[in-house]
Design a protein around this nucleic acid. Structure first.
Lengths: 333, 333
DNA sequence: TATCAAGCTGAAAACGTTTTCAATTTGATT
DNA sequence: AATCAAATTGAAAACGTTTTCAGCTTGATA
């Protein structure tokens, strides 16, 4: 019944001051005489008063809550970002409303609307793609939004990423340098700009610089699942691929186990470089070489950027690229 | 500036009805003449009115938001539960405020207070342990709380789990039946009732029924990390263990790789059964045999239970045990 | 036609804060 | 003692809904 028994009004009455003064004390406003402050604090303690954040949100138009849209928490890549986001959010006294989108445009739009209705102060969006409907919603609102690990090919939204093109180019080059002339490119849907316009581009650049011909038979478009990777082995073999750059760690683990289970040796018969450097890379055998990304930091920096936007602080550049690297492990020579 | 331009008042004015009527239309209250409803709906459409959930929350004392406390989203076991929670929450029109606790009692208490301040309608709590301070907070509030994958040794809180004792007993028995006389028990901290009072108990029961002596040298208490598992190999060897029941999949993967990297064969020299049946079990080589738990369902059922509690619906039994199983894979004979 | 219940509707009071603005108090300065 | 600025305080109006309760319409029934 009476969940919220004691209100600011009760405190004011008991302390014999106005609500305004109680509010000041609660919010640390310095314009309160120390004696008054103590008096109020004592009553607050005695009555066990807890400010109602909903009322506060209504009055102040700030909820100290931000929305986070994530394709799937269960995905180890995104959950690492989410952890970075939450830690920084907490540091700045925000809470996170987390929702899984399954990269489904309709769901994303619906979630965005719910978040706006709940008056979140800002939003962090993760995903492989920004559909047109979603972009429309983005443009429609004044609530600050930043993308984490999600490129905006139209370069309008604030975002934090790594340079996927350069990273994939470097990875591909590495494989080529090991003598592989037929390097496969395995990624999620090429409908996603991040794959088509960034990663694939890096792959092509590496080929070109090495003087190798681009062969679209070596490009495999699939979903990001372990299973999908596992089933890819026959196809890879049929096009005589001897190495692969792969866009997702679970997918890569699938490919690797598929290859291994088929009796081939990684890296002797087939080399693999994956993309996200999640802890999975260390758990499989052989350990997987990977492009390294500061996953946690991508989330953390995105959230930090969002706090600036929410406070109308000036922001130097809206799209930040974090450094990547290449970690050699046992799946490559 | 004017984030929320159009209010229910604007709609009422334009449609020439009262706010009460608009509210009724928005909330699907049937006591509105169809003609009126249409008129209002048209204005809503025209003005692009979106109800403010914060104001709604204040007036109705319902936020359609529930708090979720999770040790670490990055942990594949908990994130699976979280996914189940979120899906069901969404199905029932709730949103999730997700916060990482790191199993830190102080942080948990603080988060609970924030959640209460934000007037969440309910809370799902995950963790290995309920500290005294946390329990005190639980008792202090009238907000419904349910535990997911988290036992309450005092059996006061609603919760959903599997029968850990029986599951571990069965797993241990399985190993014993394969001829292992020295089966190690590897888990997280034995300060946690779930390990000390449930899992370890099952382990002991299995030994007893098999006529084997309990040797506490075979009990390994560690943290739940991959790394910790990997470093355990020498210790396991020094006590002549030939098999292990392990309380967490990442930990188990660590142990297995530690053993394998030391030149031993799993399962020929060392058998392993792990506990959570996350997808990790299928990704490592050899694949790990595991106690199976319906991870997603634990979360889903917990959230479903919470919705009932929030609606004051009668609940048959407050602590639900979901079925477990034993999945044989390649890490056991 | 009078009557009554059921169906609709609106006025206004919550909900629990923050914030504005004016009033009061204080203390230093002349 | 008079004056003034600065410090402290309170009254009351937001904030945008829901909800209660009474009143008004209807249409059917006697």
């Amino acid at each position: 019944m009476d969940k919220q028994t004691v209100t600011i009004y009760d405190v004011a009455r008991e302390a014999d001051v106005s609500m305004a003064t109680v509010s000041r004390v609660v919010n640390g406003n310095p314009n309160v005489k120390p004696a008054t402050r103590k008096k109020v604090l004592d009553v607050i303690e005695r009555l066990d008063y807890r400010p109602n954040a909903v009322a506060r949100g209504l009055a102040s138009k700030k909820t100290t809550t931000v929305g986070v849209i994530i394709p799937d928490v269960t995905n180890i890549y995104f959950s690492a970002l989410a952890r970075g986001i939450d830690d920084i959010a907490m540091m700045y006294k925000y809470n996170i409303i987390l929702t899984n989108s399954d990269e489904n445009g309709r769901k994303e739009v619906q979630v965005l609307n719910t978040l706006m209705a709940k008056q979140v102060d800002g939003i962090v969006f993760m995903g492989n793609d920004i559909s047109d409907e979603v972009r429309k919603e983005f443009e429609r609102t004044k609530t600050p939004i930043v993308l984490a690990g999600c490129v905006d090919d139209q370069d309008q939204m604030p975002s934090v990423n790594i340079d996927y093109t350069a990273a994939v180019e470097e990875a591909t080059k590495n494989l080529i340098d090991h003598g592989n002339e037929r390097v496969a490119f395995v990624s999620g849907s090429l409908d996603y700009p991040i794959n088509r316009d960034y990663r694939l581009k890096g792959y092509k650049q590496a080929l070109k610089k090495a003087g190798l011909r681009y062969d679209d038979k070596l490009v495999f478009e699939t979903d990001y699942s372990y299973k999908a990777g596992q089933l890819l082995q026959p196809a890879l073999q049929s096009v005589n691929a001897t190495a692969a750059v792969i866009g997702d760690d679970e997918l890569a683990a699938g490919v690797m186990n598929g290859v291994t289970d088929a009796g081939l040796s990684v890296p002797d018969d087939f080399e693999i470089i994956t993309s996200n450097d999640t802890k999975l890379t260390e758990m499989v055998r052989p350990k997987m070489s990977s492009i390294t990304q500061p996953l946690y930091d991508i989330g953390a920096v995105a959230m930090r950027l969002l706090t600036k936007l929410m406070n109308n602080e000036p922001v130097e550049n809206k799209t930040v690229l974090l450094p990547y690297g290449l970690m050699k492990r046992a799946s490559t020579h």
